[in-house]
Protein backbone atom coordinates (compact mmCIF):
# COMPACT_ATOMS: atom_id res chain seq x y z
CA UNK A 1 0.00 0.00 0.00
CA UNK A 2 1.38 3.49 -0.81
CA UNK A 3 2.71 5.50 2.08
CA UNK A 4 2.52 9.30 2.46
CA UNK A 5 4.63 11.55 4.65
CA UNK A 6 4.71 15.30 5.19
CA UNK A 7 7.42 17.90 5.68
CA UNK A 8 8.42 18.42 9.28
CA UNK A 9 7.80 22.14 8.88
CA UNK A 10 4.11 21.46 8.51
CA UNK A 11 3.91 19.85 11.92
CA UNK A 12 4.04 23.11 13.85
CA UNK A 13 0.87 24.22 12.06
CA UNK A 14 -1.07 20.99 11.84
CA UNK A 15 -0.11 17.52 12.93
CA UNK A 16 0.23 15.19 9.95
CA UNK A 17 2.04 11.95 10.77
CA UNK A 18 3.06 9.55 8.00
CA UNK A 19 0.57 6.86 7.13
CA UNK A 20 -0.38 4.27 4.58
CA UNK A 21 -3.14 5.13 2.13
CA UNK A 22 -5.32 3.00 -0.09
CA UNK A 23 -5.19 5.19 -3.20
CA UNK A 24 -4.65 4.99 -6.95
CA UNK A 25 -3.63 8.63 -7.48
CA UNK A 26 -1.98 11.41 -5.53
CA UNK A 27 -5.35 13.17 -5.34
CA UNK A 28 -6.96 10.10 -3.80
CA UNK A 29 -4.12 9.77 -1.34
CA UNK A 30 -4.52 13.37 -0.19
CA UNK A 31 -8.30 13.12 0.01
CA UNK A 32 -7.94 10.05 2.19
CA UNK A 33 -5.78 12.02 4.59
CA UNK A 34 -8.02 15.12 4.45
CA UNK A 35 -11.06 13.02 5.33
CA UNK A 36 -9.51 12.39 8.73
CA UNK A 37 -7.61 15.68 9.00
CA UNK A 38 -9.69 18.35 7.25
CA UNK A 39 -7.61 21.27 8.50
CA UNK A 40 -4.64 19.98 6.53
CA UNK A 41 -6.36 20.66 3.20
CA UNK A 42 -5.92 24.44 3.13
CA UNK A 43 -2.24 24.09 3.97
CA UNK A 44 -1.52 22.03 0.84
CA UNK A 45 -4.22 23.03 -1.64
CA UNK A 46 -5.69 26.41 -2.47
CA UNK A 47 -9.43 27.02 -2.52
CA UNK A 48 -9.60 25.82 -6.11
CA UNK A 49 -8.05 22.47 -5.27
CA UNK A 50 -4.67 23.21 -6.81
CA UNK A 51 -1.45 22.32 -5.10
CA UNK A 52 -0.10 25.47 -3.45
CA UNK A 53 2.62 27.09 -5.49
CA UNK A 54 5.31 26.58 -2.89
CA UNK A 55 4.46 23.00 -1.97
CA UNK A 56 5.96 20.11 -3.90
CA UNK A 57 5.02 16.45 -3.98
CA UNK A 58 7.24 13.57 -5.03
CA UNK A 59 6.27 10.00 -5.75
CA UNK A 60 9.40 8.09 -4.86
CA UNK A 61 12.16 10.18 -6.46
CA UNK A 62 9.97 11.83 -9.10
CA UNK A 63 8.18 15.14 -8.75
CA UNK A 64 4.54 14.85 -9.73
CA UNK A 65 3.59 16.09 -13.19
CA UNK A 66 -0.01 17.15 -12.58
CA UNK A 67 0.04 19.92 -9.98
CA UNK A 68 -3.51 21.00 -10.83
CA UNK A 69 -5.32 17.67 -11.07
CA UNK A 70 -2.96 15.58 -8.93
CA UNK A 71 -3.75 12.62 -11.18
CA UNK A 72 -0.30 11.05 -10.97
CA UNK A 73 -0.80 7.33 -10.54
CA UNK A 74 0.31 5.36 -7.52
CA UNK A 75 1.21 1.72 -7.33
CA UNK A 76 2.24 -0.90 -4.82
CA UNK A 77 4.69 0.37 -2.30
CA UNK A 78 5.09 3.91 -3.66
CA UNK A 79 6.34 6.53 -1.25
CA UNK A 80 4.66 9.95 -1.45
CA UNK A 81 6.62 12.84 -0.01
CA UNK A 82 4.95 16.22 0.59
CA UNK A 83 7.61 18.90 0.89
CA UNK A 84 7.77 22.64 0.97
CA UNK A 85 9.44 23.93 -2.16
CA UNK A 86 12.72 25.81 -1.78
CA UNK A 87 10.87 29.01 -2.54
CA UNK A 88 8.10 30.97 -0.97
CA UNK A 89 9.71 31.49 2.41
CA UNK A 90 10.59 34.90 3.73
Amino acid sequence: MPRISFTANLQRHVSSPPREVQAGTVREALETVFAENPRLRSYLLDEHGRLRRHVSIYVNDRMIADRGGLADALAGEDEIFVFQALSGGW
Partner: peptide, 8 residues
Protein backbone atom coordinates in the same frame (compact mmCIF):
# COMPACT_ATOMS: atom_id res chain seq x y z
CA UNK B 1 0.43 34.78 5.11
CA UNK B 2 2.44 31.60 5.26
CA UNK B 3 4.95 31.52 2.46
CA UNK B 4 4.35 27.86 1.69
CA UNK B 5 1.01 27.01 3.21
CA UNK B 6 -1.22 29.94 2.36
CA UNK B 7 -3.42 32.43 4.20
CA UNK B 8 -4.51 31.51 7.72
Amino acid sequence: RLGHFGVK
